[in-house]
């Protein structure tokens, strides 16, 4: 009972994950939505085209490109982004799409790793993500890492002592300064943020949030980041992939 009490107290104020899912798109201004809707005006497509070029460009001593193994991305990558993160069979750990692309690059192509947040890395992720645009997120939730991710999501952190859930579950739709607090879904990454004036990954966004509450961010490749990404995808199950999304 002693251990249940704080949990009960938490339940009495926490709303839990959103039932009526709203993409960040729905909370963005008409101008920002229009920017996302037009492929010729969506700046994310500058990165998509970069990734498309990367896809068939050989790298590493084997002279292999992504296309050498995977062929035409518009066929082979269709629906892939909607299934990530998944549990990697080799390690039995959550694997994000960004990390999978990185591993392909270093292990299969034996090429130099693409720096995180580089145009090349974001471009490839955006190009692969685009092949699932419009498809509902459908990540396998039957593993213990989902619960671990949820615990992290609901854990207060940083000097402001705030959890992700306090803003994005309990107060989603309300306002923080002039901006609507979105439900915080991962369905548009990598995405073009007006704030960044550039494309960025989910990792960058999570880091951004943690710095915002003055917490020390989890390292990019940490099990914590992967578990959070997995829980976010499960929490957003059914929302359509919007890559490359545009957000304020």
């Amino acid at each position: 009972m002693k251990r249940l009490l704080p949990l009960l107290l938490l339940c009495s104020i926490a709303a839990g994950p959103p039932v009526d899912l709203r993409s960040g798109y729905d909370d963005a201004s008409a101008e920002t939505r229009a920017m996302q809707d037009d492929d010729g005006g969506n700046p994310g497509f500058l990165w998509v085209r970069e990734g498309e070029a990367q896809w068939s460009q050989p790298a590493g001593p084997l002279g292999k490109s992504c296309a050498s193994c995977h062929g035409d991305a518009t066929v082979s990558m269709r629906g892939v982004a909607a299934r990530y993160p998944l549990i990697d069979k080799a390690t039995n750990r959550p694997m994000t799409l960004d990390r999978r692309i990185g591993e392909c690059r270093t292990d299969r192509q034996q090429a130099e790793a693409l720096p995180p947040e580089s145009d090349a890395a974001l471009g490839l992720a955006a190009y692969v993500g685009l092949q699932s645009r419009g498809m509902p997120l459908n990540v396998d939730a039957d593993n213990p890492f989902v619960a671990a991710g949820r615990r992290l999501f609901e854990t207060r952190m940083g000097q402001l002592n705030l959890s992700c859930a306090q803003c994005h579950d309990d107060r989603a739709g309300m306002k923080l300064a002039g901006a609507v607090i979105p439900q915080g879904h991962p369905n548009g990454y990598p995405e073009y943020r007006l704030e960044w004036q550039a494309m960025g990954s989910l990792n960058r966004r999570l880091r951004n949030c943690m710095v915002g509450v003055r917490a020390e961010p989890f390292p990019p490749d940490s099990p914590e980041m992967a578990a959070l990404a997995l829980y976010l995808a499960v929490r957003a199950k059914g929302l359509k992939v919007e890559t490359p999304a545009v957000r304020p």
């Binding site: 963005a28 201004s29 008409a30 101008e31 920002t32 229009a34 920017m35 901006a179 007006l194 704030e195 004036q197 304020p248």
Partner: peptide, 12 residues
């Protein structure tokens, strides 16, 4: 121009 600007970095 929008009368209320969401983010001054990029205004349509």
């Amino acid at each position: 121009l929008p009368v209320l600007v969401e983010n001054g970095n990029t205004v349509a």
